[in-house]
Design a binder for these strands. Structure first.
Length: 194
DNA sequence: CCAGTGATGTCCT
DNA sequence: GGACATCACTGGT
């Protein structure tokens, strides 16, 4: 008997900034078509929302960004220069926001992740939004996927000490460049560096 | 319809 | 530190 508490992941309904911080240290569990189970710890995120010039939702809802206007805990997948990137949708439905997953650290199935990454490993395995989608085989097929269920589950972990989290400007954006809405674990080898 | 543009990654020097 | 491959989406004709 599985116990599903309505309070579970309630913090995902926080605003993107708080949720992006809270996601650090949580884990992703990915069941591949082969049956193999991959697991990784989230070490870097960025917050985006409707009032944010750098956000995909800034100019309102479109077919592409529709998932970000839906319920929290689902996955928004988009393509960028030939790469996939993904957000965990946060906040209340109707207001487009989410937390971009920028980097993860492998916990299980690292060899397979490396294969999915074309042989890359270590600090280059999943230290970027496109890299982590490749390492965890996240594509448009998971658009809108509910992260409470297989084949991609979000696993909650205890909140981190706020002192272990570094806030800095987001990477790769050309608007709202001064906002410190990028969050990552201090001194973690697997975060992106740019 | 078409040109411009990225929430990127990789290779090169 | 810089060039470029690469492609869906967007906004303007």
């Amino acid at each position: 008997m599985v116990l599903t508490s309505p309070a579970h992941f309630g913090w995902l309904r926080l605003r993107s900034e708080a949720a992006a911080r809270r996601l650090l240290g949580c884990e992703l569990e990915r069941r591949l078509d082969t049956g193999e189970l991959l697991r990784a710890r989230i070490v870097e995120t960025e917050a985006y929302d409707e009032d944010d010039e750098a956000s995909h939702t800034y100019r309102g809802r479109t077919e592409r960004n529709a998932a970000m206007f839906g319920p929290a805990g689902r996955l928004y997948v988009y393509r960028m220069r030939g790469h996939h990137c993904c957000n965990v949708v946060t906040g209340e439905a109707g207001y487009g926001q989410g937390a971009l997953l920028r980097a993860v650290e492998p916990l299980a199935g690292e060899a397979t992740m490396s294969l999915l990454r074309g042989g890359r490993a270590g600090a280059d395995l999943a230290s970027g939004p496109g890299k982590l989608c490749q390492a965890l085989a996240i594509t448009h097929g998971l658009y809108g996927h509910d992260l409470a269920s297989a084949p991609l589950r979000l696993i909650e972990r205890p909140p981190l000490d706020p002192a272990a989290i570094v806030a800095s400007p987001r990477i790769g954006v050309s608007r709202a460049v001064t906002a410190h809405r990028r969050f990552h674990l201090r001194d973690n080898v697997h975060v992106s560096r740019r």
